[in-house]
Design a protein around this nucleic acid. Structure first.
Lengths: 156, 156
DNA sequence: CATGAGCATGATATATTGTAACTTCCCGCC
DNA sequence: GGCGGGAAGTTACAATATATCATGCTCATG
């Protein structure tokens, strides 16, 4: 369908991929960062920084302040280990940190489930539109709010 | 350029168009709503609800609480008089309230200037992608963060 | 070993953005 | 006048995000 065959990691494989990617970027893979990544990857929907902080706190058995989590999430986003979902003020782990995509999120307003679509043709068109308007270094934010099939069916 | 010729209102013309549109939607055009609309339209960049509250307070000579502004902005967004810029947690007046578009915002990370592009072909593709994935009632959020031509030139 | 540079994290405070709950006001209508 | 309903006010609070300074850790150097 999307025309390329990158690997969709999960579990330990994802964790290794994340660590490799982060270190390749010249950043450190510390215990704290591993804990934050685990927590984020453990959510099946976009999680707010505070949600992540709470999850990490529980896992570590001590209070982790939100700002530490913010710092780490910023690094993750910069390194492509995670994505920020702007319309939800939340973050989600990237299942294939090694591939750069302008990705499209479909977010269910009812249940919060978020699916991730890559359509390089579409995003290239958007980049091009931005460049035509004189914008450089464009970073597209493409999200669609709506109702997922499951919730839609349950709405009768 | 964008292929259709709706009117780009400004000043009193825009205000009248907004009032007409809002009343057609079954909502009232009150003094407060006019004041909020004026304030919002007076910004040349996306403004936060608090920015708007401050501007309205100044214009009215009395304190207007942010939550009143939120209520009104929500109505405006629902009626297409204003748009929310998700990636900036901000709002911007819609210059042509009578036309429904999935619009694309280009937001300069340096100066905040935001330009508005309508590309019905592009947004239709995104809607279609969402529908293919089982999403219904999609509301696309298409924004591009980057650097505008002016700031880019000034960056040397 | 002492020192200092550089980075990661902690702690605290505060700023910004967004909602909730309840009250008061105003206006049209009987 | 009294009543009903929507708009706006008031207050409080929740959720999200950043700033600042302190602490600790590692490593290189002398």
């Amino acid at each position: 369908m999307s025309g390329h065959d990158h690997q969709l990691h999960e579990g330990d494989s994802l964790k290794r991929a994340a660590r490799d990617r982060l270190t390749q970027q010249g950043e450190q893979w510390t215990g704290m960062r591993a804990a934050v990544f685990d927590a984020l990857a453990g959510f099946d929907k976009p999680a707010s920084a505070y949600d992540v902080a709470e999850a990490v706190s529980k896992a570590e058995g001590r209070r982790i302040a939100a700002n530490s989590v913010y710092r780490i999430l910023d690094i993750f986003v910069a390194a492509n280990l995670a994505r920020r979902v702007e319309s939800a003020n939340a973050y989600i782990a990237n299942k294939h940190p090694e591939c750069l995509h302008d990705c499209i999120f479909l977010i269910c307003d009812t249940c919060g489930q978020t699916v991730h679509v890559d359509d390089d043709h579409l995003s290239a068109s958007i980049r091009k539109a931005a460049e035509n308007a004189g914008f450089s270094a464009p970073r597209p934010v493409i999200e669609v709010r709506g109702t997922c099939g499951e919730c839609d069916a349950g709405m009768k």
